[in-house]
Design a protein around this nucleic acid. Sequence first.
DNA 1: AATTTAATGCAAATCTATTGCATTTGCAAC
DNA 2: GTTGCAAATGCAATAGATTTGCATTAAATT
Lengths: 141, 141
Amino acid sequence: MSESAVEQSKLVIREAGLRATPARVATLELLQKSSSPLTHADVAEHLSKTGVDKATAFRALNDMTEAGLLRRTELGDRVWRFELIGEGEHEHLGHPHFVCIDCGQVSCLGDIKLTKKSLTTSAQIGRITEILLRGQCADCL
Amino acid sequence: MSESAVEQSKLVIREAGLRATPARVATLELLQKSSSPLTHADVAEHLSKTGVDKATAFRALNDMTEAGLLRRTELGDRVWRFELIGEGEHEHLGHPHFVCIDCGQVSCLGDIKLTKKSLTTSAQIGRITEILLRGQCADCL
DNA sequence: AATTTAATGCAAATCTATTGCATTTGCAAC
DNA sequence: GTTGCAAATGCAATAGATTTGCATTAAATT
């Protein structure tokens, strides 16, 4: 199973126009297993176990983000987080996120929408591609 | 007029429990004049004209934020931005912001609202205190 | 297996922000 | 007004996240 999973990951990486290096494969697998976005540090620490340099981990994440495999977001704590872009998702048109300002927990939201009036107002400002909500999650209230 | 404005600022600062130093007064006045949140760098650059150190500018912003005069937000580019907390506004319940992902311009929005359905959904997640919209501004489209 | 060119490791550099410490200053009490 | 002292400042050093230069290594192609 893990054998074919690795091959599958390699394919995905090559399809994005990048070489399928061990660092990138491991990064992709790690993000696949994770249910929430991971930081540079998270990934770097994991990869360091197999002797991969942190700069390489950073580059793996940035390169794969640029190649359209990952999405990079900043949730208010000055740290980048990365998540796999789902099959049907657009590169820059992801789902809304909710971030708890107390515990840092991140939730992916599906059906959050603005009122028509708000859409009209925002259309004058520009084109909205991302909605981020911050507040306190149910556990922290 | 500017004389009394300075006195007014001093009063506000003292009421917050801080000493009314030139750096703080100048910071407050600058933020009062600005229509969108300013970065520490913006403020530091402005204050440096009168010989104020950047560390002092940082401390002025952080201290006044802690004292409840300013709101500090992070809009996705790993840079803190500061804005005056309006008269009727809650400390942690500000207005929505829009950030252009191309030019970085930040706009303050007033009347952006979520649909009722979205509010119901989000209420299950927790209490929303901040809405951040990202996209491309009219100039960058 | 040889070739080409992207990727890596390592260290140094950036960028934003913070902090230690000696010195200065606001401001409240005299 | 002068004094006293905690609070604020300047300057330099530091911290933390991320990036970059460059020589070396290793994918992918032939």
